[in-house]
Design a protein around this nucleic acid. Structure first.
Lengths: 176, 176
DNA sequence: CCCTTTTCACCTAGGTGGTAAGAT
DNA sequence: ATCTTACCACCTAGGTGAAAAGGG
């Protein structure tokens, strides 16, 4: 499924006439597997779900194939990338290790850090030699998240129902 | 609206590593304006519509702005263009002279010839000088058509209902 | 009379969380 | 008990011709 909210960036400082590739990948935040805690068993599922928090459940599962998502407009000129916010709304996540749709493969119940990479398309013939200096990586720690197959927290569910247009069918109240 | 059927081409002979832009435009086939003929007035509209044919109605209206439609994947490498059929399914036509959606503007009741252009993206600094030799134009006369705002022939209507997936709601019979 | 515009029901295509069943 | 899968109703977004209304 899509990642929501979508990762978006505003870019400055590119060479307007040069070509760039924009891409994202995801690295594990730690070597842990998480699980839900049910702090108040007799109360029933509802309360526990609301107040849920993450507990370490052990060591991480084997790492998934480290796939990469190229922004579909790549390659494009710096001027094109800079003139508006770049949105990675086509990026999709899956837990299916055998996925053949090119989606990003993650382990459920593990924490991930999205990364954003800018690659300068070097016009020189021996451009491979300069690969090291032709890309830059940006990490925004506030975008870290725990991958799940089903929501573990009602506030996350409500936040998504409130803000994702495709979940409009589940809204109770005001249509702002 | 979209042009249907979609203009599609299979490309051979490009340099797999070079960049190309693919685009289309539309030129008038002649300097005429057409109109419907109603060959059998007392019979009512139904029969006349079925057997309709085009009559010259006079000289063409003033030419519309000669817009161009770039294939949205442009620019891309020759290898990319050649590995599958290229489909211009995002191309849209309009009769609105004030259109600001970048659609191709045509005069209704006029005949047009679609043209397909391949532009080699010349990496040389003085590439403008070679513009003349860096593109090639292809014309398929079987793609000529008369632009209309409403269908003038039931067989065209039925052909489109039968073959355009979005018109499935109007099909009477077999769902092949 | 002939053509154009507007609106509409009905599609395609695909993104939501809910829910029940399945797996461990 | 906890997590995953499969399916679903309900959305967004937008491409169809029909039909009625509008224009010259």
């Amino acid at each position: 499924r899509r990642m929501f909210p979508t990762f978006q960036v505003k870019i400055f400082g590119m060479d307007p006439m040069a070509d760039y590739m924009l891409l994202m990948d995801f690295i594990p935040v730690d070597d842990k597997r998480y699980r839900q805690v049910m702090p108040c068993p007799p109360c029933g599922a509802q309360y526990a779900f609301h107040s849920s928090s993450w507990l370490v459940a052990g060591k991480a599962d084997p790492a998934t194939p480290g796939r990469v998502h190229y922004h579909p407009d790549s390659p494009a000129k710096g001027a094109q990338w800079m003139k508006q916010i770049v949105s990675f709304d086509k990026l999709k996540l899956t837990n299916n290790l055998l996925d053949d749709n090119g989606h990003i493969i993650l382990n459920s119940m593990h924490r991930y850090q999205p990364r954003f990479h800018v690659v300068y398309v070097d016009p020189r013939k021996d451009s491979e030699k300069y690969a090291e200096e032709n890309f830059k990586t940006f990490v925004f720690e506030e975008t870290r998240f725990t991958a799940v197959t089903a929501y573990q927290n009602h506030r996350i569910t409500q936040l998504k129902i409130a803000s994702n247009p495709f979940a409009k069918g589940f809204r109770d109240c005001d249509p702002e």
